[in-house]
Write a protein that binds this DNA or RNA. Structure first.
Lengths: 121, 121
DNA sequence: AATATTATTGTAACTTTGTAGCATTATTGA
DNA sequence: TCAATAATGCTACAAAGTTACAATAATATT
């Protein structure tokens, strides 16, 4: 059921309370946490903390069994205020000497295609 | 006093509770929040949410009055578990068509120079 | 089929983080 | 000195997670 909710809104990431609301109390708060935790462990969904520490969860179309990339972009639209996965490569060019990289989590803010000034015209 | 604490540990970012501890109860919890908030507004420190939504605060050496860059890297060392600012440029190369960017917050995980396998040898 | 075992869920309590409101104390200015 | 403004402390509150344990459901075993 949790997966259904997430797929129904596949383009944007949902917070725990979003999911809870959409399930209308049919599944307990704690159970939802556990299920999301499980999905994360299995690499089925991404956990995305925003600038204020609020966390969102999103399915990733690119990520399937075996092929899971942790280091890709997440995007928050400052207009429609949705968070989503963006199909873009790991963005780090090079780090200063001495640093090695094992993962990246990156949240970009701006206008999404729907809310982009061009489109709104 | 809050600034003193942050400068004394200038290389790594501190959480609110870190700061609270180091002040040993001399300043109230809420006041610390307010001071950190103020520093953030003034662009003196950075607010850095980690992968788990826990937020850290860090001085940035590069950022001074007037010259404040929001879009730069933060780094968490998976070994010594410290969070810090990294002197690297805004890392986003290019976004898919339709997206526009106004800000980036990026947290890289890996080994810091101190904990790097080479150094530990 | 009946029972034991294991995994999932629900429930309540608790911790942590952050915020809001208001009284109290410092600071500044006239 | 005394009013006005700002900064601090304190209490209470809300939201987000976690933990522990009881209750249900699902599997397995005989």
């Amino acid at each position: 059921m949790v997966m259904d909710v997430m797929q129904s809104e596949s383009s944007s990431a949902l917070s725990h309370s979003d999911i809870e609301q959409r399930l209308g109390g049919k599944i307990d708060r704690v159970t939802i946490y556990r299920i999301l935790q499980g999905f994360c462990d299995d690499g089925i969904i991404h956990k995305i903390p925003d600038e204020n520490g609020k966390t969102y969860y999103a399915l990733c179309h690119d990520c399937s069994e075996g092929h899971h990339h942790d280091s890709h972009l997440h995007f928050r639209c400052v207009s429609c205020d949705t968070v989503s996965c963006v199909d873009a490569p790991a963005p780090i060019s090079h780090l200063p000497a001495g640093y090695s990289m094992s993962g990246v989590s990156c949240l970009v803010s701006g206008y999404c295609p729907n809310c982009s000034p061009d489109v709104v015209e």
